[in-house]
């Protein structure tokens, strides 16, 4: 599939909100801004030339190094990266959409970063976004039923964050 053509089309439509295209990696990806993600996704699904009707997976990756010594060596600033793996069952091609989010909203610890929910576009996103919210602590604005899915509802913290500390006990059950 011609990722450059897709990128040019998105760029023309959404301008600088479509930030970058990288094709040298194993899976080519396009980075878009958190504000226009929903519009970009809607176009990807509905445009007859692309028809990305299948959302394979939503992933969040926490880029944060708790160890100060190691943190000095890394080449990125702390952030949370969202990845949307899309494919088309009709045209049989795939693309990865990336969104960069701050680790905490307005850099206030405990305030979850926000991104628009795509559950109105692909229903797969419903459970996947709940899972990301549960384990990584990302707030999906517009999600119909955002609550924890794998952890108990009263669980504290977001286990997949790199600075997560397992609570000592949960309802009297020792964890460590």
């Amino acid at each position: 599939m011609d990722h450059q053509k897709l990128f040019d089309q998105l760029r023309e439509r959404f301008g600088d909100d479509v930030r970058a295209l990288v094709v040298e990696t194993i899976d080519p990806w396009i980075e878009v801004s958190a504000e226009r993600l929903e519009d970009v996704c809607r176009l990807l699904k509905n445009d007859a030339a692309w028809q990305f009707n299948l959302l394979n997976c939503i992933t969040a990756v926490d880029y944060f190094e708790p160890d100060a010594k190691k943190a000095a060596k890394v080449d990125w600033k702390p952030h949370v990266q969202m990845l949307y793996h899309l494919s088309s069952t009709t045209l049989k091609h795939t693309v990865v959409i990336k969104v960069r989010l701050p680790r905490w909203k307005d850099d206030v610890a405990g305030q979850l970063p926000e991104v628009a929910s795509v559950s109105g576009i692909w229903r797969t996103a419903d459970w996947h976004e709940r899972e990301v919210y549960d384990l990584m602590g990302v707030m999906f604005v517009g999600h119909p039923d955002l609550r924890r899915i794998l952890c108990p509802e009263d669980w504290e913290g977001y286990p997949l964050r790199k600075d997560y500390v397992m609570p000592l006990e949960y309802h009297g059950i020792r964890n460590r």
């Binding site: 009707n53 959302l55 069952t89 692909w122 229903r123 797969t124």
Partner: peptide, 9 residues
Amino acid sequence: SAEMAIDYG
């Protein structure tokens, strides 16, 4: 339905 099957992944 087929549409729903794809929509839900």
